[in-house]
Amino acid sequence: MQPIEAVIFDADGTLVDSETPGLDVLHEQALALGLSWEREALHGRFRGVRMADCAASLAAEAGRHEPGFADALLQQIRAAMAERFRRGLSPMAGAEALLRRLTLPFCIATNGPREKVELTLGLTG
């Protein structure tokens, strides 16, 4: 077995507690589209799913198939999430202490856009 030389962390739900507030924004957007998703059902369905796929699913569920609607919805969701994050976002419990004690090189990988990870990491230090 080879020694571990570096660590790659995911950002959302690993270092930054952004999944629940982000999914709450997605739930609000679903309700605004007239969908009757329960909060817990939406969280379960979309946790860990790419936001573009979430927006496309909500658009399809709402019967909004016009060109560009899902993309516009995605931008609206991302803007609402950024605003929610600015109102208060926390690091995951123990994340800061772990990173301070870690002696191996590390980096962060994410499936989200760079602007989002820069915002969430910046807000949480």
Rank of each mutant, 00 (worst) to 15 (best):
A72C: 03
A52F: 11
C54V: 09
N111W: 09
F9G: 01
R47E: 10
P3A: 04
D71I: 00
H27Q: 13
P113L: 11
W37E: 09
G34F: 10
A72S: 02
V7L: 15
Q76V: 10
E96L: 10
H27K: 12
L15E: 02
E66V: 10
A59P: 15
L102K: 14
R64M: 15
L89G: 00
K116R: 10
C107S: 09
R47H: 11
P67E: 05
R87A: 02
R78V: 03
G88C: 02
C107A: 10
M51E: 11
A56Q: 12
L58Y: 14
G68I: 05
H65A: 00
L31P: 14
Q76L: 03
G13E: 01
R45N: 15
A41V: 12
Q76F: 12
P105I: 14
R101Y: 09
L104S: 09
P113R: 05
D24K: 02
V117K: 06
L33I: 08
L89I: 00
L104F: 08
H43R: 08
T20H: 07
E83R: 01
L99H: 13
A6Q: 13
E66L: 05
D71F: 00
F106R: 09
W37N: 08
A52V: 15
M51Y: 07
S18F: 03
A32F: 09
F106H: 13
P3G: 05
T14R: 00
R84K: 01
D24V: 04
M81R: 02
E40L: 10
L33A: 13
E40W: 10
A11F: 04
R45L: 13
A11M: 06
A60G: 13
